[in-house]
Design a protein around this nucleic acid. Structure first.
Ligand SMILES: [Mn+2]
Ligand SMILES: [Mn+2]
Ligand SMILES: [Mn+2]
Ligand SMILES: [Mn+2]
Lengths: 220, 220
DNA sequence: ATATTTTTTTAAGCTTACTTAAATTTAAAC
DNA sequence: GTTTAAATTTAAGTAAGCTTAAAAAAATAT
C-alpha cells in the first residue's frame, strides 16, 4: 500500500486536474497539504521514481496514468465514505470531510464495494462531487459553472460545493444553499464581487469567497 | 492523537490483561506486533515517558490508568467496527478483524458513537468480545472457560472465539462453531489434547489448537 | 535588458519506527 | 553454585516524512 502522504499528494493533483488545471504547482500542493515547499520537492522525486507522477524540476506536476488510477481510488474512498456518513449515519454534510480525509486511506476495495452497494451505487457525494466506480470511471455530469461567473437574470440549480472550511459548508447549509436548490442571480456587484441571489424565495447577498465555492447547472 | 504503533502496543497489553495476564512480556509483544524485541524496548521507554505504561527494565509491561483508557478506546473502535462490518454490511466474521485492525486507529469519537447508536449499543462484537462503552466501561459478562478445559459430559454455549488466523475463524463458522451454539463435551484425548464434541447433533473432533480459541459458558 | 521578486530546489538536520548485532541481565539446568 | 540458555536492552544504522536556511532558476517589473 501507498502511504497516506503519497495518497493525499496524488489526490490533490487529480483534484486540480478535475478543476481544469492540467498541471499542479509545487507551492499549491505545499499549501493544501500543509507542508513546506522543500517537502513537495522531496516527495515529487520519490513519486517520480514510483512512476506515479511526471516530474521535471521547476515544471508543474502531472500524474502518470498509474498515478491517476491511485488518485481515483483515494477519491472513490473519500467520496463513498462521505456519502455513507451523511446518508447512513446522519452526520452533517459539514462534518464528514474531515472524517473521510482519514478513512480514505485504509479501507479495502472489498469494503468500499460493500459500502457502494449498500448506498445503491451513488454517482455523487453529499457535496455534489462525482464518485468514481470500482474501475475508476467517473459518472457523466452536466457542465457546471462557478456561481461567481453566473449571469444576471438566469436561474440555476446548485450542483456542487467545493471542499473548503467546514464553517463555510455549515453556513451554506443553514442558508439553504444545498445541492439541488434553485438559485436565481438578481444582481452582481463589481466593487467587491458579491452577488445578490434569490434562494427559496428569499433574497441574499453572497460574498465573493462564498460564491467561489458553489458550482451551478443552468436550468432549461 | 497517539500513533498507530502506540495504539496497537497498548491494546495488546490490555488484551493480555483481559486474558488474565497482569503484565505482558516484551517478547510476546514483539511476536504479536511483528517487530523485533529491540523495537519493543525502544517503544516501552517512549510510552513510559508518555505516562502510558509502567516500565522497569527487564520487568513485564503494565498499563497506567491513562494507558488503559487509551487501550479501551482502541478496543471500542475495533469491536464496534467489526460489529458494523458484519451486521450492516454483511461481511463474513472471518474477514472483519483485519479491516478493523486498520479502522480502529483513526475514526473519531463522534463517529464511533454514531455507529454504536446505529447498531443499538451492542455489548459484544461478532466474535463474542465485550465492547467498552464510550466511558470505557465493559459490559457484564458471564464467567467463561476455554473449551480446552471443559469437562466431559457437560453442555456449554459458545460465548467467544479469540482473535486468530482468519482461516481458523472461517473453519469455525463452517463447522457451526458460532457464538451461541450449544456444544457438549463427549470425550477428551490425552495423547494429543484433541476433543470429541457434539455440535448441532453432529459429532466432531477438535484439535488442541482449535479448542484453545473457543471460550464457553456453562449451561444451567 | 537588467534588476527584483517569486518559485523551486538543494543541503543539512530532526523524529518516528523500525532493523541487526553485540552486550547484559535474568532464569533454568545440572 | 556454576554453567548454560533465554529474554531483554544497548548500540549503531536506515527510510519516510518532515523542518529551516541557503542557493538557484524562472517569472515579473522597470
Ligand atoms: Mn470531501
Ligand atoms: Mn487524507
Ligand atoms: Mn478482532
Ligand atoms: Mn491496528
Amino acid at each position: 500500500m501507498i502511504t497516506f502522504s503519497k495518497q493525499d499528494f496524488l489526490k490533490n493533483i487529480y483534484k486540480q486536474k478535475e478543476k481544469g488545471n492540467d498541471s499542479t504547482s509545487a507551492s499549491y500542493l505545499a499549501d493544501v497539504l500543509n507542508v513546506s515547499n522543500a517537502a513537495i520537492s522531496d516527495m515529487s522525486k520519490k513519486l517520480s521514481i514510483d512512476g506515479l507522477i511526471h516530474y521535471r524540476p521547476y515544471k508543474g506536476l502531472v500524474l502518470t496514468s498509474q498515478g491517476e488510477k491511485e488518485a481515483l481510488k483515494v477519491l472513490r474512498r473519500h467520496r463513498l465514505w462521505e456519502m455513507f456518513l451523511v446518508k447512513t449515519l446522519g452526520m452533517d454534510w459539514s462534518e464528514v470531510h474531515e472524517e473521510a480525509e482519514n478513512l480514505e486511506h485504509l479501507s479495502s476495495d472489498q469494503l468500499m464495494d460493500k459500502i457502494d452497494a449498500f448506498l445503491d451505487f451513488p454517482d455523487f457525494d453529499p457535496h455534489g462531487s462525482p464518485i468514481p466506480d470500482r474501475d475508476g470511471n467517473m459518472p457523466d455530469s452536466p457542465v457546471l459553472i462557478l456561481l461567481n461567473k453566473a449571469k444576471t437574470g438566469e436561474e440555476y440549480k446548485i450542483a456542487r460545493v467545493m471542499d473548503s472550511d467546514n464553517k463555510i459548508i455549515k453556513y451554506l447549509g443553514k442558508a439553504g444553499l444545498v445541492i439541488g436548490a434553485r438559485i436565481k442571480i438578481i444582481d452582481k456587484f463589481d466593487f467587491d464581487n458579491s452577488i445578490n441571489v434569490l434562494i427559496n424565495g428569499k433574497e441574499m447577498i453572497l460574498s465573493e469567497k462564498v460564491s467561489k465555492t458553489i458550482y451551478l447547472e443552468l436550468l432549461n
